[in-house]
Nucleic acid binder design. Sequence first.
RNA 1: GGGGAGAUGCCGGAGUGGUCAAACGGGGCGGACUGUAAAUCCGUUGGCUUUGCCUACGAAGGUUCGAAUCCUUCUCUCCCCA
Length: 400
Amino acid sequence: MERQVEALRWGTVELIGEDDLRRKLRRSVTTGVPLRVKLGVDPTAHDLHVGFTVPLTKLRIFQDLGHLPVLIIGDATAMVGDPTGKNKARPQLTREMVDDYARSYLEQAALVLDLERCELRRNSEWLHALGFTGLIELVAKATVAQMLVRDDFAKRYAEGTAIYLHELVYPLMQGHDSVVVRADVELGGQDQLFNLLIGRQLQREAGQEEQVCMMGPLLVGLDGKKKMSKSAGNYVGISEPAGEMFGKIMSIPDEAMLDWFVLAARMPKAEAEALIAAGGHPRELKDQLARLVVARFHDGRAAEEASATFRRVISNKETPEEMPELRLAATELAEGGISAIRLVVLAGYAASNGEARRLVQQGGVRLDGEPVTDPTAALTLAGGEVLKVGKRNFARILLD
RNA sequence: GGGGAGAUGCCGGAGUGGUCAAACGGGGCGGACUGUAAAUCCGUUGGCUUUGCCUACGAAGGUUCGAAUCCUUCUCUCCCCA
């Protein structure tokens, strides 16, 4: 049991109900009944990001200790939107989007968790079945003052920005999930404290044993300051191509490396600290970090390749070995050539002609290494040329 | 129910009849620099067949030679009173 407590230290910054946890673990050891460990994800985008792998990894640790992960796909809660940390209401998603995201989330979660040994649930199963009466009973369990304790709500209230009633219901929905699945433990990020505590409250009122709340650290995003989130756009998706992932990790500030080694690469803290304390060039350390993370979500080979490509393309400004192909139809070249604008647009590196024009004018477009200066001049191509747009967008031109 | 304030580009936020595709900041993009896709600096940031045209300042109408700016109605948000 002490071994379990020790293993569970990873990725926990705050623990509500430590005594409960010990008691539950002890009982589990004697009775052989695994603990039900709940983690909820709201499918609100295609990518699951690396920050989310922290609680997911923690769930994996529980799983490896013989406990039962209860992974809840928050398809009902996603449609409401978790207001945590938000200063404005989140746009509501459609049923179709949520279903689509839910599917891709599961695929991605499988990279960390063994889904065969999990209980997978969708909270629409019970939340949508609640009905109006059920909803009223649920919301009657908490007060407005209680909800306003949460500082994001309090802040918005003070600032005079809109708080919709359904946002106030969100924590109750999440708490109700805990009641339904009879969670022994619920995992979440540090910012989820309030929501997880509501789970305890509702369980208590339902006559259940209260769940232990384990809050994990929030992995900082690429900017090294804010927590990684989709809305902040500072995230690394766990199913991103290896090269993208590698490059993004290379760009995190040096100070964020320790956190990343521990939380994203799952290196034991002492080891990571020693590694960083040993000095070493930050570039090399980060290269190692990036390789570890890429290897975790792809494989070792992809990690080595990503590292080599990065060195080549970014550090040495050379041309990568592999790049997308841009097939040009003969008609594009019919009038003696093709403009750089058209080329960039066809390659998909500019959303409009105006943007392409700007890129050329700003010196961001090269053909076989030579800067293209005139956006409209007709370029004659023989095929096989390499188009470069910006620092790292390439395309090999092929003629039909 | 009554009274007041407000809705501007990806976001925040100026602008109260022409010189506004709209200050400024953030974000994005490009360039320089760098171990880095960081920091910093410079530039750029609605679309198009680009010395011009089109679309845009919550929505729809109207006044005017001309409207983000004035009027009417509508929609939404916030505050105060009940």
